[in-house]
Amino acid sequence: MKRKIFLLAVSIIMTALPLLPASSGEPAAGRSSVHIRGAGTVMSLIQYSAEEYMSENPNVIISVSGGGTDRGIKSLIDGTSQIAMASSEINEELLLFAEEKGVTLVKHAVAYDAIVPVVNPDNPVSSLSKEQLRKIYTSGITNWKEVSGKDLPIDLTTRNLGSGTYEGWKHLVIGKEAVMSPRAIPMESRPLRKYISENPDAIGYFAFSYIDNSIKPLAVNGILASYESIKSGKYPLKRELILYTREDASAEIINFIEYVKEATPKFAEAAGVFPIN
C-alpha cells in the first residue's frame, strides 16, 4: 500500500512536470530573411549572388549553408529553410516525406554543370566509354588492365549518398537496371579529391568545378570535360543545378531566384557552372 501511495505521488509529480504553456512568437519583423541550404555544387553561385543581392537590398538577410542536396530538400520540407540548392531531382524518400507533410515543391533550374570521372595523375588511362564506366561501377570490370591500364585492382570511390552528384552519377552512368558496387567508398568532394591524388589505382567522380591539378579528369566517350565541350553539349555527363522552393514561396524568395537566374552568366565562370541557354 505504501508503495502504491508512493507510486501515486511520484506519478502525480511526474504527470505535472510536462504541462507546458501554449504561446507563439513571431519571427523578426521589419526586415526579411531567406535561409538557403543544400548542394555544395550550387553553393558558389548562390554565395556570389546572395552577397551582391544583400548589398543592393540591405533589409534582406540571405544565409547560405551546405550539407548536400538531401539536407537542403529536407530543410525546405520541415520549414527550417526556404530555398534548397540541389544538383539532382528530389529522390523518392524525400518525395514521400513532402507528401506526408503536405508540402508541394517547385523546381527552378538556374544553371547546369557536368560530372567528371577522375583518376590519379599517374594512371595511364585517360579515356573511358560510358559503358566501361558503368561496368566499373557495377563490378563488371574490376582491374585496370581490362581497360588498357596497369594490372591493378580498381579502387572504387563514390560521392556520398546525400549528394546530388551521387544521384546524377547513378542516373547518367549506372542506369535504373543496375546497382552501384558496394565496394565503392563514399566521400565528400574535397576528401575524395585528396584520396584520388594519393592513390594510384583509385577512380572517383565529382562536379566539374572541383577539378584541379592534383587529379586527372578522364574523357568520356572520347570527350574531355572543358568549358567548350560542356557548353556545346558534346560532353555527355551534364546535369541541371536547381533551386527548389515551396509552392507558396513569398515574393521575396521568388525575387531572389529571378535575381540568381539573371546573375548566373556573370558569376558562372567563378562558380564553375554554366548558364542555361
Binding site: 504541462l19 504561446s23 523578426a28 519583423a29
Partner: peptide, 19 residues
C-alpha cells in the same frame, strides 16, 4: 501533453528568431 511541450519549446525557438 506532448503538444503543449512542443509549443513551449517552439515559443523559445521563435523568441530566439524574433527581432
Amino acid at each position: 501533453v506532448h503538444q503543449l511541450k512542443i509549443e513551449a519549446v517552439m515559443s523559445f525557438i521563435d523568441f530566439a528568431r524574433s527581432a
